[in-house]
């Protein structure tokens, strides 16, 4: 009768070790793809928390952008490039903004939740594209980061340092979210999606629960954006804040599936590989391939890539 053993933590730990070891031998281009994938995965992890509650945000590029621009501005204006400072600062900015906007957005559901998130993100986009000091549509570059005071001279070294740091951050974030999902509050997702009245009558505030999830997702998206800015050494509104990026984040969330905290990482890598190869082979049709993939997932694989893996490895999906 007892649920099968939860393999998430050992699985993540094995994954971490494999990724760390592989980091030493992986080619540069692959490290690049992994860095970008993992930074997106962090934002997707936050969206997954919301999605389990039935909420889809079409504006999380807002927090992605806030995180990215925080890192970039710290570097540009204050000359701060220490990852241990810039990345927490980005998370702080994103979660603070999320905390205040959360008081408004927690009253909304369904399409209204999606539209209000979209409006917030487009406000930021509207400001950024018209702000000369921040490079308008071109954006500006982010200085080479340092970690614990050590800055790498070579771009390649820099990449691998970032990769190791990112593996650590991703592991930590996944563990924390996993722990959260096992708590009563984390478990309220399906309950809220199914029946808000009952949750209230059991004595818990739905608004409060959604607010917590929203701030978490904002912090994670801010974290992801910060790392994306560092890996690309560049920020600009169209690849970080525009609505198409929010759409992309939702897409990867669906592609990954809600089954496990590991799913966003796998899903992001799959997405980045599809995109990279599609762009290489058919530069004018990569969006077509991405779009078709998304449709295929919606129709044939509603549990995302994770459910496919779970099926292959013979485990029941999520054991819910």
């Amino acid at each position: 009768m007892t649920a099968s053993r939860d393999w998430t933590i050992p699985g993540l730990t094995i994954g971490l070790v494999v990724m760390l070891v592989a980091g030493v031998v992986l080619p540069d281009w692959l490290l690049n793809i992994l860095n970008i994938s993992f930074s997106r995965a962090l934002a997707v992890l936050g969206l997954m928390v919301l999605w389990r509650t039935g909420l889809i945000s079409f504006g999380h590029a807002f927090y992605y952008g806030l995180g990215a621009y925080t890192v970039a501005i710290l570097g540009k204006e204050l000359g701060v490039s220490e990852i241990l400072v810039t990345v927490p600062a980005a998370m702080l900015v994103a979660s603070t903004v999320g905390f205040f906007l959360g008081f408004i957005i927690r009253r909304y559901r369904d399409i209204f939740f999606a539209m209000l998130s979209l409006a917030f993100s487009m406000v930021l986009y509207g400001i950024l594209v018209k702000t000369e000091a921040l490079g308008s549509t071109d954006g500006f570059s982010v200085p080479t980061p340092s970690f614990l005071g050590f800055g790498a001279e070579e771009a390649a070294d820099n990449k691998i340092v970032l990769y190791f740091v990112l593996c650590g951050i991703g592991y930590g974030a996944a563990l924390l979210v996993h722990r959260y999902l096992q708590s009563t509050l984390g478990n309220l997702s399906t309950a809220i999606r199914d029946n808000e009245i009952r949750v209230e009558y059991l004595g818990y505030s739905v608004a409060h629960a959604i607010h917590v999830k929203y701030v978490m997702s904002a912090a994670l998206a801010g974290l992801g954006g910060a790392i994306l800015a560092i890996s690309l050494s560049q920020v600009d509104p169209d690849s970080m804040v525009n609505w198409t990026i929010s759409g992309e984040l939702v897409f990867v969330t669906i592609l990954s599936g809600p089954g496990s905290v590991a799913a966003p990482f796998i899903g992001s890598v799959v997405f980045e590989l599809i995109r990279t190869y599609a762009f290489e082979w058919l530069p004018h049709a990569w969006q077509l391939i991405v779009g078709a993939t998304l449709l295929a997932i919606i129709f044939f694989l509603p549990g995302g890539v994770w459910s496919l893996l779970a099926r292959i490895f013979g485990r029941k999906e999520g054991e819910r």
Binding site: L185, V199, L202
Partner: peptide
């Protein structure tokens, strides 16, 4: 939910 008071809502369910 019934057992949750303040932060104990974060205990394992």
């Amino acid at each position: 939910i019934a057992a949750a008071t303040g932060f104990s809502v974060l205990r394992y369910m």
